[in-house]
Amino acid sequence: MKKFVAAGLLAMAASSLAFGADDWPSKNINLTVPYGAGGTTDLTARALANAMGKDLGVTINVINTPGAGGSAGSLNVQNAPVDGYTMLANGMLAFATMPVNGYTEKTFREWDVWIATYAPNCIIVPKDSPYNTIQDLINDIKKRPGQVTAGTAGIGSGGFFGAETVKAIAGANYKHIPYAGGGPALTGLLAGEVDFVPQLLAEYKDLIIAGKVKALAVLAAEDITLAPGVVVPSIMKSYPNEAKKFVPMGEVTAILLPKGLSEDKLKKIDKAFDVATKDKAFLDFCAARSFEVIPKGRAESQQFLEGFAGKAVYILYDGGAVSIDPAKFNFKRP
């Protein structure tokens, strides 16, 4: 009996100690990834979380909250109290276009953003597909508008923007087949359900090298060499004029926090982020996945996003994917 009382009191004392510390961060931070585990955003977030956590001295837990093209998790963080313990990791294509998709009235300007990596889109087709070059594909889209099927991770995903870029270059529409994520879209391609998949190179780099899928083009400015003898041509090679507006196209992943945290805590995050993006484990990880590390601090990120978000929202608006005019949110045309 006495043992119980003692144990209970001890336990309560121990737990009250956990509440004690005064400087931030004093408990674990939750990093929301608004997609399923294993995708590009998720993996980048985990790598960053690990490196940043080491610097800040706490564990940063990654919580997957998939749904609605990344907006479910993002809105969760937006609505949470701004105490620095709830952060978001998201792709900027999906995130910056939330206002024109009608998910929220707030724009990226109301968040503190730290941009980390860039992953280009890559158009792939099944290995026994009749298309061998990007011209084959685009010519077929022109010939049969609305029939050629593209599998993406949904409206607002990196892949969707890749597809819209192809549509803009071809001048004709494709049939959009949304999946629950990059992984399912890839399995859909392998099962022969869709004609092409314009998701991110990082998601199927190994499959390209192994020859299980054919890569027609990458939406980066230059060719990319994945392995000795395996080169994916840049789309600029075949369509220099039409593609110029869009390239480089791909998903830019960042860590975000709604504005409102005090400056001293923000400086701690700045420092942790800086350390993380120079961390060898992180850099190795990005190199293996063909992510380009482009770390940007808060001010730089805002500047970058003015141009990037502008490009993204107008792709959606001009392509008819959204009907809310970007000008309403002060997005400027690139």
Binding site: A7, G8, S15, N30, T59
Partner: peptide, 22 residues
């Protein structure tokens, strides 16, 4: 009273200290 204290305390211990979950 004892059971209440012990169980609440035990739960707090398990989750906040061992699992480090808020």
């Amino acid at each position: 009273i004892v059971i209440s204290l012990a169980s609440v305390g035990g739960v707090l211990l398990l989750f906040q200290v061992v699992f480090r979950a808020a």
